[in-house]
Design a protein around this nucleic acid. Sequence first.
DNA 1: TACAAAACTTACTATTTAGTAAGTAATCCT
DNA 2: AGGATTACTTACTAAATAGTAAGTTTTGTA
Lengths: 191, 191
Amino acid sequence: MTARNTDTKEEIVRIGTALIKSHGYNAFSYADIAEKLQVRNAAIHYHFRGKEDLLSEIIDQYIDLYHSLDQQLKAVGASATVTLEKFIERYSCLVDANSICIIGSIASDYNTLPVSVKEKVNELVTLVLKLVEQTLASGKKSGEFVFRETPKTQTLLLMTNLAAGVQLARITGKKDYDTIKKAIIRQLKEG
Amino acid sequence: MTARNTDTKEEIVRIGTALIKSHGYNAFSYADIAEKLQVRNAAIHYHFRGKEDLLSEIIDQYIDLYHSLDQQLKAVGASATVTLEKFIERYSCLVDANSICIIGSIASDYNTLPVSVKEKVNELVTLVLKLVEQTLASGKKSGEFVFRETPKTQTLLLMTNLAAGVQLARITGKKDYDTIKKAIIRQLKEG
DNA sequence: TACAAAACTTACTATTTAGTAAGTAATCCT
DNA sequence: AGGATTACTTACTAAATAGTAAGTTTTGTA
């Protein structure tokens, strides 16, 4: 009768992810997803018992994504510079989409989440920090990057600049994000 | 009949502010405030027509607070170092309270807010950035701080480190925030 | 091609949320 | 002391939200 979409589940994840990044986790309901997908509310419940299960899946997919990204870049032997550029580019895209990074969005709602989801968020954050740290350490070794802090500390500084940079851009405009981005890159390149 | 509290309105603002910083704007309802205050739901509506009016008042109070803080510190002739320390201390307290800064929290829900509130958020952010920029510029001139970027750029880097630092601390623990805090201060002091 | 499983829909319930209208108690003012 | 004003309460309503149960259509497979 109605058109059945074989990848409804993937679409739910896609729309849910977009909604978290643009409106926040506690600001959307299954009805919002159902409307965008042109299905009934119960169809969302068929694929994901509850909102927390959907969030859990979304985080899982981010973890998978970062694992894949890392493997791909390592497979082609990408330099630290290229790797970092790809990473930063993801944040620039967020600004253009009037969205913020999923971790920053979830951080706001963190205290409303069940422990199982909190643990997954921790896993994702730890992974991302580890990958960036590896990139910075490798770049320092190769002479591509110059910085005095430990790779771990430099990673924390870089990540917080980016994450809050996209949040700030939403309020005061893209220019502030661009200023931050340029400063980050210049500092890493010139020490 | 029941105990009338003359500062119910202030209490509502206080509880609302705490809820935004701990759970997020879209994660609490008037019922949550009513329960904590031991009044009925309608009492909250009496003081603030709707949730957006409450948020508006909360932001107004932050704007007032930063104006006062600035005036006080200028009145006693506080150095740039002391002024910045006071500012950073506010973020350290947030971490201890398992909360995040109100601007970062609102940034997540930003796209769900009416234009009138968005403008007020912008006003608050612009004010805070201006005050920090003045402090950094003054500290540079006095030789207290050493940095190569413009005061404006340095302010953006500092603010994003702090704002996302408290968000990150919520997920990975206070140690990461402390690392960021120390690095910020050391860099400003040693260049 | 029949049957089972998957992917839904319809139809419902219970709870939360936002909000209003009307009434009441306390306090303020003249 | 009486009337107005403030600060509520009780008692609603309408809509949104989360979720379930049972039935229907579609699709893959034996």
